[in-house]
Design a protein around this nucleic acid. Sequence first.
DNA 1: AATGAATGAGGGTTCATTCAT
DNA 2: GATGAATGAACCCTCATTCAT
Lengths: 184, 184, 184, 184
Amino acid sequence: MTPPRADAIRNRARILEAAEQVLVEHGTTVSTEEIAKAAGVGIGTLFRHFPTKEELIRGVFEARLQRLAADATRLATDGDPATALATFLRQAVEQSEVKNALTSMLASAGVDVRDLTGEPQRALREALATLLRKAQQSGAARQDLEVPELIGLLAGTSKALEYAGDAASRSRILAVVLAGLRAG
Amino acid sequence: MTPPRADAIRNRARILEAAEQVLVEHGTTVSTEEIAKAAGVGIGTLFRHFPTKEELIRGVFEARLQRLAADATRLATDGDPATALATFLRQAVEQSEVKNALTSMLASAGVDVRDLTGEPQRALREALATLLRKAQQSGAARQDLEVPELIGLLAGTSKALEYAGDAASRSRILAVVLAGLRAG
Amino acid sequence: MTPPRADAIRNRARILEAAEQVLVEHGTTVSTEEIAKAAGVGIGTLFRHFPTKEELIRGVFEARLQRLAADATRLATDGDPATALATFLRQAVEQSEVKNALTSMLASAGVDVRDLTGEPQRALREALATLLRKAQQSGAARQDLEVPELIGLLAGTSKALEYAGDAASRSRILAVVLAGLRAG
Amino acid sequence: MTPPRADAIRNRARILEAAEQVLVEHGTTVSTEEIAKAAGVGIGTLFRHFPTKEELIRGVFEARLQRLAADATRLATDGDPATALATFLRQAVEQSEVKNALTSMLASAGVDVRDLTGEPQRALREALATLLRKAQQSGAARQDLEVPELIGLLAGTSKALEYAGDAASRSRILAVVLAGLRAG
DNA sequence: AATGAATGAGGGTTCATTCAT
DNA sequence: GATGAATGAACCCTCATTCAT
């Protein structure tokens, strides 16, 4: 009934933020205690907001999906249809800051990344669909591609970039994928 | 000094085999006990052969690398230079049987996949170098590609395929990557 | 100094009532939060009235003792001396509604039921003393019995009845105890 | 296949023994750690033998039932039919060493004492049946009594005795119950 | 006075690793 | 060499209690 207290909202956000950082850095095996410490809250507070480690991880994951969806939507609206898809992929993939792609967070236990149920997943799928359609209409992407492949390639490219030794290597990997997307 | 007993050798092999299967199926979080059970040996035996869980995982990983290197070498020797690289990538990636790519095994704890030290890594690198050189000479691969990118793309493609819903989706993802490798 | 606010009084009563119900149903291991929810108040409120879980439990216990004492007093005043004691025991023991006797609430942690200090304990002891004396004078109870035994038998009979499978079994258990009380 | 190792058997026994003592003394809320310490084993060992706290408690309980059943059987075989039942009840009830009856251990969480499934329960029921039948045949017990009531009275008497202040009080409580059992 | 978010000690349980058999 | 029982640090999570709102 009553709206949540201001400090509760703030804490939830801090936890999500810290969790993302710590999880991306150390993988899902880090202890919840570690995450709580990074967020500057007690362990009890963390569990009040996310009653299960799995739910916390899912929360982080879905927040990430939401940001991706927002990015995709923005580009689909504002950007040049011919380049928007490539730009999106570049951005999305940069964001993971070299270490551990958006998905390897969940690689191991718990969350099944391929579960496309859930609102954030739906939002991302829809935004990507628009982006892809526009790219295809302007000849910037193969006609046969569909959204699931796009998501896979997003995750895969992230993964691939982990192996790049330097910036030149990174850009060559990206070039390969982008060329592949274009090629009809 | 004395050569290992016959049953010791056999046990080592059984452990590696069982470990690969179990790790691929359940991720690195499975207990060593589980692995020992799958191998049909006591945990004591497992730890005698691999004094650490990490070393066991590394062992599985390197065995896989060795098989990859052997495949690559075979194709580099016997195959058509123009198609060998693509064939290799297809094979390598199929092998992981949809579930869990060769690298996500190590994603979380312990082993850093990008560590290219070690004999198996060297062997794979060398085999891939040959494969890549021949492909480039016959115009089947971009001139700017180097081995690290190839390894990254290998891992990334595996990852990407985890998201494919059906065979058609799989083959489109592969098509994208292969086209990208070719495109100059 | 100032008398407590009307709602404070009402809340205290609601908490005691809810606590009795929940404690009897689930045992002393239920969380205070659960009790607060059942009472329709926040935990903060619960802890304002009973600064400790133990004190809450003791509160519930003493309320129960007070009701027992009132029953005993009423029967000692109004009832037939020859049957009042038996009637009391029957009533007291029925009240716990098969599930969890008045004492098993306190069995585990905290409250020592045998602590006879405290006003409610004193009141019950006194009422029972009267009841017992009258019964003995009218030959309805053994001469050697004293109040502590009576209290023990009360608790014990409650406990015994938990094992009764049906009404017939219950009444046989009661019959045994009542006969025993009478037998000289 | 192979019989359990000697030390494993010994440890299991030590754990059960220590657990009984500690549980009877402090109730089921004591930590497993405490029990392990009392048994002189590591926490891991305790959980290897009893994978759950509940199973440990049940183990203790059933061991106790087995001893009771053995006592009952012995008395039913060797003893004077006219006194065996009373002797059994006296023994059983003394055994709990004043503090906490055999059942209050389980009063709170987990084990439902009234669950009469299980081999030890069956054994006790059967032994009590014999004891009871003989007592009834020799006129030492009411004809209408059945085993469930006997079990309930056993537990109830234990409980009642917790309230006895001194030996005299204890023996009066016992006298009441024994007289009740006899009375026809 | 009432609320419920925050806290952290403590609890049950797992699991990599060691070591007696 | 092989076995599996023993170990205890570490983990996830609960809950009595405190305190800002």
